[in-house]
């Protein structure tokens, strides 16, 4: 009875309580963090633009290659995109499959062990991957490349003669795929584990097999998350420096993936930066700016893809 007879606290007293102060601190902290990220991003962008300006105003003849910035940057942009595309084409299906195996197929003990291994892969520094790619993987791939050149050489991307060292853009792409795989796999796994049991049971109760259940209730739910995971992987593949610098013996842009040649923006910056000064330095920073814009564009496209299906996302 004492509960009922006690006077109820006045509505006004709540405002002075500690909960209110906590609210203010938290909203202030959240706002601060939000502003900070914008400021940092803006500062980086400004730095890149200001430092890159001399390149854009320089005479075309002074730019590396002697034909202006556009023809300098074009081959390495394409090289960057090719390497990243190879990485994603390989890593996305494998990453999703690994994640599904861990979340829905493997026995519980095995799933945990495998999860640790995947997370461990993500923690290996990129220089290790680069060294592995340059010394081991490239040598192993020489024979397959020769076979590709002999048998599928009529397809431009497998045009011969195959590289004698194996240090090609395809090798770099494969190394990038191995690096990107754990990012995609571990993010996708987290999302698959969050797929609502309610809908998975609904699918099973309709007579779905496990794979059909995954297609009905897990993959559609995880769609946005998978795209985010792939974009994060793409971000790493686009920006990866050390592994590509070590694995790829670079050169001018060529169509064949199994010959020496091509270059990525990040590796170009890393290799040339220590000795660059003056206009060359500005050029490299301008290349960095282009990479920045590509990444921004990719992320915006990803957001757009996710938002297109908002109505059916289950968030409402």
């Amino acid at each position: 009875m004492s509960i009922i007879t006690k006077p109820a606290p006045k509505a006004g007293t709540r405002q002075a309580g500690p909960g209110r102060a906590g609210d203010k601190v938290f909203s202030g902290a959240a706002l601060g963090a939000g502003v900070l990220i914008v400021v940092v991003l803006f500062a980086v962008a400004m730095f890149l633009v200001i430092q890159a300006l001399p390149t854009f105003s320089a005479a075309p003849g002074d730019i590396t290659g002697g034909k202006g910035f556009a023809s300098y940057i074009f081959p390495i942009v394409v090289g960057t995109l090719i390497a990243a595309a190879i990485a994603l084409v390989i890593a996305t299906p494998i990453g999703i499959a690994v994640a599904l195996f861990i979340s829905h197929y493997a026995p519980r003990g095995m799933a945990r062990g495998l999860g640790y291994v995947v997370d461990l892969l993500a923690a290996i520094p990129s220089v290790i991957y680069g060294a592995w790619g340059a010394t081991f993987l490239a040598a192993q791939l020489k024979v397959p490349y020769q076979w590709l050149a002999d048998n599928l050489g009529w397809i431009p991307i497998f045009g011969g003669p195959a590289s004698g060292t194996g240090k090609t853009i395809l090798t770099a792409g494969i190394v990038l795929a191995v690096m990107v795989l754990p990012i995609i796999a571990s993010l996708a796994r987290e999302i698959f584990l969050q797929a609502p049991m309610l809908h998975q049971e609904a699918a099973l109760a309709l007579g779905a097999t496990r794979w059909e259940m995954i297609r009905m209730a897990v993959l559609p739910f995880a769609r946005g998350g998978i795209i985010s995971a792939v974009m994060l992987g793409l971000g790493r593949a686009l920006g990866e420096t050390m592994a590509v610098a070590l694995v790829l013996s670079s050169g001018p842009l060529i169509a064949s993936l199994i010959r020496s040649g091509n270059q990525t923006i990040a590796a170009e910056i890393a290799l040339d930066f220590p000795e660059a000064f003056g206009l060359r330095l500005s050029e490299l920073i301008a290349a960095g700016l282009v990479l920045f814009l590509i990444t921004l564009l990719v992320n915006m496209v990803a957001r757009w893809i996710i938002s297109r299906h908002k109505e059916f996302s289950g968030a409402n």
């Binding site: 309610l198 099973l204 996302s313 409402n316």
Partner: peptide, 17 residues
């Protein structure tokens, strides 16, 4: 399960369909 249907405690239409 395809012969014996089930309706659950919480309504669970597939949200993506």
């Amino acid at each position: 399960r395809s012969q014996i249907g089930m309706v659950f405690q919480r309504p669970n239409p597939f949200p993506t369909m």
